[in-house]
Structures are given as structure tokens and as C-alpha cells.
Design a protein around this nucleic acid. Structure first.
Length: 308
RNA sequence: GGAGGGGUGGCCGAGCGGUCAAUGGCAGCAGACUGUAAAUCUGCCGACUUCGCGUCUACGAAGGUUCGAAUCCUUCCCCCUCCA
């Protein structure tokens, strides 16, 4: 197997991706590129577990905290950003090490997907409003007049995807299902993916410990700072695990302990969803079961073999 | 001591004579996923199970009324509020 152009380190949240990516980048003269939706926003560096200043000093890190919270990231947008960064790495002859757990983003980059023009954000807002106003059933019927195919495919309760289909129809004059027939083309680069598969009990404990460390590091102040700026509830970056729970705590609806408990539970549920995705949607080149005190050695050996 | 309210499946919480193994939410388990993805959605969720509208044990405890009770009555045990 030939030397990869892009190295990917992925796995569920808190599985140890960042540390491994850092170690591999450090060893191979690489650059770590963020492949995690929430870490791309600038509002919650602590809450979203972005790399420390020390880590950033040791190795170049890209796409962490680069988008204002008021922006909306998407798989396509991230993919464009990542491509630019990978290109830069290649020019500088540095190994791009993608690190993150947003499975859809990684797939979009690697396998490509349909070219669909972006649509005005107001359409989304409007569509959501319509969903509330008309009700799910009527919204569905209306969408079915223009895109019966997508409606047949979507579960009736899936508001987000119905809204998406509607905004694409409205914004482009062509139905989403027609757009989706264009497959897009796979990336021109060779990828090598390392997947971290954690033991459940171990991960559970790590999630909890990490959360408590965040509390000690001052997440609550970080979150309060955002809340004080009265953010628009529709901003996707507000959905970082822990943010909604801390908001409720700061508004007096939950005790800190309750907020902590719920945030940890949600994080664990997310990790489960990620594992389901990786299991069925990803074909990793190397799987490392965690915990492992030799994850780095295993990964390095694997890379040496590829290069040799 | 007196007057009320309440004890329901891991938790919260509906039900208030039959169609109730018991609405709903949470948690749990499994899954889906082409542009909001740390998102969104689906299935299962007392036990057993040949997974079937099947059997068993169930709505604080013990009795009772009734063809039939989580739902009515009696006693008892807890909890909460108010008066003293």
C-alpha cells in the first residue's frame, strides 16, 4: 500500500483522538486539522475540548475555533475548508492529520457528495416557521407536491430533513432528491483512517472525568459569557454538549449537579451514535481498541508499513 | 392530636370499575443517516418466550365488594401540606 496523502484519526468523543493525532503529527512533521463540527466554532473552546495552547504550540493545528458562533457550518463548508488546509499542507510537505468525530464530514470529504448550491438562511428559518404553523402532516404534504421521492424516504417526524428538503426546493427550484442523484466525486487524495474503538466502561469514565475537568477549567464562565450575549437559539454551534444544560442551570432551571448529569448522559449517547456510524459507514484501515498504552506505537508501526 | 393530599413499572408522571402490562417523558438497548451531524430520526424497553392479540407476576401491605379493581370499601404501614 502506498503512502497516504491524508491521515485520519477518528473515533467517538473522548476516545483519545486528539492525543493520538498530536503524537502522530509531532512525529511525522504533520499538521492536525480539525474534523469536528463543534470544535470549529469559536465560542466554546473549553466545552468542546479544543486543543490546549501547549498542544498548538507543539504542532500546527488548523480549523479549531475559526468560525463565529453566528455562522452555520455544514458538511460542504467544512469540506471546502479542509481541502484548503490539506492543500496547504501538501505544498509545505507536511502530513495532514485529520482529527475528529463528525463522520458525515469525513465521508463528504473522502467520498464526495452531490453538488448542491447553498441556499439563503432565511429559507431555513421560514421552513421551520412553516413546520410549526402548518404542522408536520401538512408540511409533508406540501413538500410531497414538489419532491415526493424525498417524502417517501423520510420518516414523518424528521423535522430537520423535511426542512432541509423544502429549503433546497425553494432555494434552487429543483428538488433535493434530484440533486442527490449527482453522487459527487471521491477525493483525489489517498486516505488512511485510524479508528479508535473504546471499551464502554472506560469511555464512560473518561467522559465523566473530562467533564469535571472542564468545570474546573471554568466552562461555566465560558458558557455564561455566551448566554449573556443573548445568542440566537437557532445557531447550530449552541448545540455543543453541555451548553443547553448549562444554559438551563444558569437560568435556574437545573442544579449544577443535574446539568452535569444530563450533559454527561447526552455525551455518552452521542458516543454510541458515533460508534454505530463508524461500524456501518466507515471502512477504517486500522482499528485500535482503547484503552491502550501502545496506541501510538501501533499507529506508527502501521504508518511505517504503509510508507515502507 | 385534628384536617386534607399522596404512595403506579429503573426514575418522573398519567390513569381512577372492564378494551391496562398500564398514556407520556427521562434513562437504558439496538438501529438509520447526502450538506444543522456534539444534529435529526426510528424500533425495543416487567419476566418468560415456540417473540403470537401466548403464559406468569404486577400499580405501598393485608383483607373485602364485584362476573371483573391500579381504579370502590376496611384496616395497617409510610410520605407531604395545613391547623394545633
Amino acid at each position: 500500500m502506498a503512502k497516504p496523502d491524508v491521515l485520519v484519526v477518528t473515533g467517538p468523543t473522548a476516545s483519545g483522538k486528539s492525543a493520538l493525532a498530536l503524537a502522530l503529527a509531532q512525529r511525522g512533521g504533520g499538521t492536525v486539522i480539525n474534523a469536528d463540527a463543534m470544535q470549529t466554532y469559536d465560542a466554546f473552546p473549553i466545552l468542546t475540548a479544543q486543543p490546549s495552547a501547549g498542544d498548538r504550540a507543539a504542532v500546527p493545528h488548523r480549523l479549531y475555533g475559526v468560525l463565529p458562533l453566528s455562522e452555520t457550518l455544514s458538511a460542504a463548508r467544512w469540506r471546502a475548508l479542509a481541502e484548503t488546509e490539506i492543500e496547504r499542507c501538501r505544498e509545505a510537505e507536511r502530513l495532514p492529520v485529520l482529527c475528529g468525530g463528525s463522520g458525515l464530514y469525513l465521508r463528504a470529504l473522502r467520498q464526495g457528495f452531490a453538488e448542491i448550491p447553498s441556499v439563503a438562511p432565511e429559507l431555513r428559518r421560514q421552513a421551520n416557521h412553516d413546520w410549526d404553523r402548518l404542522g408536520a402532516e401538512a408540511f409533508r404534504l406540501r413538500l410531497a407536491e414538489h419532491d415526493p421521492e424525498i417524502v417517501a424516504r423520510l420518516k414523518p417526524g424528521d423535522r430537520q430533513r423535511h426542512v432541509r428538503a423544502w429549503e433546497v426546493w425553494r432555494g434552487t427550484g429543483r428538488s433535493l432528491s434530484v440533486w442527490q442523484r449527482g453522487k459527487g466525486s471521491p477525493s483525489r487524495w489517498r486516505f488512511a483512517s485510524i479508528l479508535l474503538v473504546p471499551d464502554r466502561a472506560w469511555l464512560r469514565e473518561r467522559i465523566e472525568r473530562r467533564f469535571d475537568a472542564m468545570l474546573e477549567a471554568g466552562v461555566l464562565e465560558e458558557v455564561r459569557g455566551v448566554l449573556d450575549r443573548r445568542p440566537d437559539a437557532a445557531w447550530p454551534g449552541l448545540k455543543a454538549h453541555g451548553a443547553p444544560e448549562f444554559f438551563r442551570h444558569l437560568r435556574g432551571e437545573l442544579t449544577l449537579e443535574e446539568a452535569r448529569r444530563i450533559a454527561i448522559d447526552h455525551t455518552r449517547q452521542y458516543a454510541k451514535r458515533q460508534m454505530t456510524w463508524f461500524r456501518h459507514q466507515l471502512e477504517p484501515d486500522l482499528v485500535i481498541e482503547m484503552p491502550s498504552n501502545q496506541a501510538q506505537e501501533i499507529a506508527e508501526k502501521f504508518l511505517d508499513k504503509m510508507e515502507g
